[in-house]
Design a protein around this nucleic acid. Sequence first.
DNA 1: CGAAGAAAAAATGACTGTCAGAATTTTCCG
DNA 2: CGGAAAATTCTGACAGTCATTTTTTCTTCG
Lengths: 368, 368
Amino acid sequence: MPAPTLRSLARELGLSRTTVSDALCGSLRVKAATAERVRAAAKAAGYERNPLTGAVMSQLRRSRTQQFRGVLAAVELVEDVRSGIAVRYNSALLAGISERASQLGFNVERFVVGPQGVRIKRLDTILHTRGIQGVVLLPASGFPDLTALDWNRYTAVYTDYFIDHPPLHCVCSDHYRSMIALLRDLHERGYRRPGLFMEIPLSERLQYRWEGAFLAVQNAVPDISAVPTLRLQEITRSSFEAWFRKYNPDVVIGHSPEAVTWMKSTGARLPKTHGFVCLNVLRTNGNCATLDLQTAELGARAAELVVGQLLHNELGIPTQPSLTTIPARLIDGPTLRSAPRQRSPRHQSTSSIPPSIDSSRPLSLQEA
Amino acid sequence: MPAPTLRSLARELGLSRTTVSDALCGSLRVKAATAERVRAAAKAAGYERNPLTGAVMSQLRRSRTQQFRGVLAAVELVEDVRSGIAVRYNSALLAGISERASQLGFNVERFVVGPQGVRIKRLDTILHTRGIQGVVLLPASGFPDLTALDWNRYTAVYTDYFIDHPPLHCVCSDHYRSMIALLRDLHERGYRRPGLFMEIPLSERLQYRWEGAFLAVQNAVPDISAVPTLRLQEITRSSFEAWFRKYNPDVVIGHSPEAVTWMKSTGARLPKTHGFVCLNVLRTNGNCATLDLQTAELGARAAELVVGQLLHNELGIPTQPSLTTIPARLIDGPTLRSAPRQRSPRHQSTSSIPPSIDSSRPLSLQEA
DNA sequence: CGAAGAAAAAATGACTGTCAGAATTTTCCG
DNA sequence: CGGAAAATTCTGACAGTCATTTTTTCTTCG
């Protein structure tokens, strides 16, 4: 027996499609007794309305001429004042979401939840009345709690490493693999004493992924020296310079591009004697080598995930949340020396070449 | 002038809706000349297909009629003799793939490529003549090369960390996060000197993810002692016992369950004095605590990805390959002591609790 | 009491793109 | 040229909505 539809239900009851539809939506145009009869029959037959089709039809009927499309909500949770980086990151993400969503037939609308925007309960009402079912959550500081939403109505993706209230699918940059790939690239360029500096709050937010990869390579590759990581609540000029003088790394990796100035003040000449790579392109002004976290691609993937689930009418919280990641891309810059033009076969066969960032070669240290 | 629709375009051209639709989708059912004419007219009229309606209609039409949608190929690349673990892992994966695929209306057929099976070129022919478009690649040793297939005809997912020939979407267990979560759980149970042993080939295959997470936590959490990792091409009884005696870890983490015997022979009593966790449930016999890598769920997710792309007619190599991961689940066992029943609020507020494996709490070491 | 008019309730039609299968046209070969 | 096979095109049904139209019920007053 095929799944009951609005029409089959109407036939059964000797009514028209519209009357059944209106009755189930609680419209006042239908007599109370009839509405009751319809609801009972729908329940008995196990009728389930197809929400996506409903949304499409509604928009189609409403706007005859203009191009009708579905709507995704891009939700930002702003608890307090945010850094410029966070704002730029989120808007880059939003751009990626919007573009891909548009290709898939959806418009994107931004909603802000928090002191500067609406309350969560209010958001639930807005989304419901607007018939919005797809939600992309932009990264929030701390550990966001959105359990107040009625999740049976929505399908959502969080664009950060982890959300537990509720546990949703996540999309995020692959910091671990990006660091491995970066170290491989630096190794190919001849650097042997990479040094990492990192703010503790950021490190914890990413579950130490930058450091974890860094430490693993230091530990596993014999000809990379073990420069200790400079790990502080906040990186200051004096602490950086002391660390830099003491361990003299030949290439420095970290988030603050000011490190270039600090390095130069201690006598380093970039890229001749030392190198520098910034871990986030959004912090730079195009004057140093850096990692592009591919924010737009992340947004695109998030949009794809949400739309994919919507099209299959998969609403609610997933049984097994997953994490989807995309590796970063190295943007070369004047703070790095270039790789030797031709690599000898002997060089290729050594056991100590970290995986390359452009994924054009195997990722093991052992060449295949 | 209202936006052109499929029907208005068809009227204009003196064709039927279907012909126009097929022509724009590049179906081979339409004569080349007609298709060209339709495409030109569509472009001139500024027609834009509504992807939302298309998806709804497709789903509708399909669900009404056929119950069987197609076949997925599960491809194994077997170069040489494989370990029992690898065989068990792949068959668990295959079970997960088959089950989810079946729910989605697909059957799964297994193909073996290599000396024991068919050649890659032959696989291409088989898949083509059978009309199979969806492919799940099971993990292969080394770095598989499948560029010989005509990728315009297929959509595929690789069930391991990385494939570059061609670069496809991947689905894999989240070893990094699983290790962080495991260490958090062990910390809650009171262990403070975790020790890790690891075979180098395995470590490199996973890009040191087990070790990376382990090192990062050792480095970041003050009250966890830095027991050096036992890192060898092959773990032997004598090397293990020497390492165990020298550093005396209070809980040992690694792949070989034989370590339990080795620990006992040096005087350890489990779980009273020492603990042990195996990193892969497939290696155990249910007699020790271990990690379930959730193989079936991985297979399910892989099947979902492939089917999702198939239903949207997205064939070929993705523009930006992504990695989808699922965290492992800790299976408790007689080799671990249990966590203290009640945790004091003071305990919760310390800064040194590694994230829990069941994702029921924030993943930073800092509690929110 | 009954007929006109108003109000309430229910039905109709049109709208999107897709796909299986039917219908039509073209090609091919003896 | 006949007839089968292949290539091409067309038909119909399908989802839920809502402005509009039709049908039914109710009210009111000569």
